[in-house]
């Protein structure tokens, strides 16, 4: 019986180990070691901090890095502000018979490829786009305006792209919030604002945190939206990585950038978890 148990354990364990070691752990270690190597004059690889020095010495690199981080936090915050009322409406205000339908409506756009969604915005917003067409027809504009390729549009695109991952966790925590708590607070004389701050948000914290982590992560690592909707000056850090890898073919520099991005995402998530006194395991569930 003991032997059979061991056998069953290895049956489950070995594929999982193969997956995690070969596809996650070793590649990350390789990324780290690559980032500390440069090619010397003889064409051999030697240990060096040069890749990281380059990052700090070239303002374009670290400025992009900081911009990406700040914008990602901004996008996360905006997504939260927009998502909370929607999640609240669906779980608490809408008539129960519409809830399923609204949830389906909410989910549908996100089953469609991100590329298609970004493309949709492009044909809406560009100079020859649909919105310009209507604005001119209505006489509000004399000549078309380019609405694409600026920071505001890019941020809107990022918010749009990651919206679902904020709404769903908040919906699921709000579903577990007993309506009678809100009714009791109301009965005890609380106004809407204090109900929101004292009852709803404290209860929703786990959902908000897990939504924020996912949104932040996806925004930070996004390539498509900044690349297609952002302008020449709104470079995203993932684009820098892409340039190093594909355009300059400097893999060591790219590895250093990749590692920095990984550190940034882990750090911000860790701080977020600490500030809200949550842990990753709980948030995942």
């Amino acid at each position: 019986m003991k032997n059979q148990k061991r056998w069953v354990l290895w049956f489950f364990l070995s594929p999982v180990l193969l997956w995690l070691v070969l596809l996650i752990v070793l590649p990350q270690i390789d990324l780290l070691t690559m980032s500390f190597h440069v090619e010397n004059d003889d064409g051999r690889m030697v240990w060096s901090f040069a890749n990281y020095l380059t990052f700090f010495q070239e303002p374009i690199y670290w400025l992009t890095f900081v911009r990406t981080a700040v914008y990602s936090i901004l996008v996360t915050f905006l997504t939260f502000i927009i998502a909370l009322p929607i999640a609240f409406y669906i779980t608490k205000v809408a008539a129960p018979k519409f809830q399923g339908f609204l949830m389906m409506l909410l989910l549908l756009p996100f089953w469609v490829s991100e590329l298609v969604r970004v493309y949709g915005w492009m044909i809406l917003l560009r100079e020859s786009g649909v919105i310009n067409h209507f604005l001119i027809k209505l006489g509000l504009l004399n000549k078309p305006v380019e609405m694409l390729y600026n920071d505001a549009t890019m941020i809107m695109g990022l918010v749009y792209t990651s919206m679902l991952f904020m709404v769903i966790p908040i919906v699921s925590v709000l579903e577990s919030l007993d309506n009678s708590l809100i009714e009791a607070a109301y009965d005890l004389g609380a106004d809407m604002w204090s109900i929101l701050v004292k009852i709803i948000i404290p209860h929703a914290i786990p959902g908000i945190v897990s939504g924020s982590i996912v949104v932040f992560m996806l925004t930070l690592g996004n390539y498509l939206t900044p690349n297609l909707m952002g302008g020449k000056n709104s470079l995203w850090f993932t684009e820098q990585i892409y340039n190093q890898f594909i355009a300059s073919f400097n893999w060591n520099q790219g590895a250093a950038f990749g590692f920095l991005l990984l550190v940034l995402s882990s750090l911000v998530i860790w701080i977020g978890l600490k500030l809200t006194k949550q842990n990753l395991k709980k948030v995942v569930q």
């Binding site: 999982v16 996650i24 070793l26 390789d30 992560m217 690592g221 790219g254 990749g258 995942v284």
Partner: peptide, 24 residues
């Protein structure tokens, strides 16, 4: 430990997963 390793892909941006696998 293994559980946290399993969760890791959730906090590693997809771009990084791509390049690290390419390098490896």
């Amino acid at each position: 430990l293994l559980y946290f390793m399993m969760l890791a892909p959730l906090v590693i941006p997809g771009v990084i997963l791509g390049i690290s696998l390419l390098l490896f």
